[in-house]
Amino acid sequence: MGGMRTLSLELRPLGLNLEEEAPLVHQVYRGSPGYFTLIGMELPTLEDVLQDLNTLAQDPRRRAFLLFQGPEPLGYLDYKLHYPEEGDATLSLLLIREDHQGQGLGQRALAHLVEGLAGMERLYAVVYGNNPRAKAFFLAQGFRYVKDGGPAIQWYVRPLSPHRFQPR
């Protein structure tokens, strides 16, 4: 059992070949039906996924990655640079397939993301729906609650740059 955890987590950028990538993203979504139930959404179709990836590819500030450990896609990560403001990054979705949750993959994906965000000062995370597991995850990763962004959206934030002490 311990052997699986030693496999390294690979983040592969999306947007190079959407026709090939969309089915892999769809596979992750199909392996995460609880998430879509939780946010009150139908499981996206392959066409929905392709459309979303096309939209994403047209926004130069957005980045998306498939998470791999071996040949199978286990997760999906989507964020936007310089949003809501210059120097901020916002994590829109970090989704780990249900059969791989609880293995520290989300933590490792977040660590990869943070390492790659050179020059950004803050990382926001958006939690949709009533999702106590996601809230607990982000709080455990050093985020703090900021505000509600509507009836079913909560915003969390954590600083990225080394903290300079600012007396009040």
Rank of each mutant, 00 (worst) to 15 (best):
E10A: 12
L11Y: 09
L11M: 14
L14A: 09
G15P: 06
G15I: 08
L16M: 09
N17I: 02
N17G: 08
N17H: 09
L18P: 06
E19D: 14
E19G: 14
E21G: 03
E21I: 06
A22Y: 06
H26M: 02
Q27L: 12
Q27H: 13
S32G: 03
P33T: 09
P33M: 02
G34S: 11
G34H: 02
G34N: 03
Y35V: 06
I39W: 11
I39V: 15
G40I: 09
E42W: 05
P44D: 07
T45E: 07
L46S: 10
L46A: 08
L46P: 07
E47C: 02
L50W: 10
L53N: 00
L53R: 05
N54M: 03
T55H: 10
L56K: 00
D59V: 05
P60L: 06
R61F: 01
R61Q: 12
R62T: 04
A64C: 11
A64F: 08
L66Q: 12
L66P: 06
L67P: 08
F68P: 11
Q69N: 02
G70E: 10
G70L: 12
P71E: 02
E72C: 04
G75R: 13
G75N: 12
G75H: 12
L77V: 01
L77C: 08
D78V: 12
K80Y: 02
H82C: 15
H82Q: 09
P84D: 02
E86A: 12
G87H: 06
G87S: 07
G87Y: 01
D88H: 15
D88R: 04
D88N: 13
A89M: 06
A89Q: 02
T90M: 14
T90N: 12
T90D: 12
T90R: 13
L91R: 03
L91V: 04
L91K: 04
L94T: 05
I96H: 08
R97P: 01
E98C: 13
Q103G: 03
G104M: 01
Q107V: 12
Q107R: 15
A109I: 01
A111Q: 15
A111E: 15
H112C: 14
H112F: 13
H112M: 10
L113R: 10
V114N: 12
E115W: 11
G116L: 07
G116F: 04
A118Q: 14
A118N: 05
G119T: 11
M120H: 03
M120T: 05
E121H: 08
R122G: 02
R122F: 00
L123M: 11
L123Q: 10
L123N: 11
A125W: 08
V127H: 04
V127R: 04
Y128P: 03
G129R: 03
G129Q: 01
N131I: 04
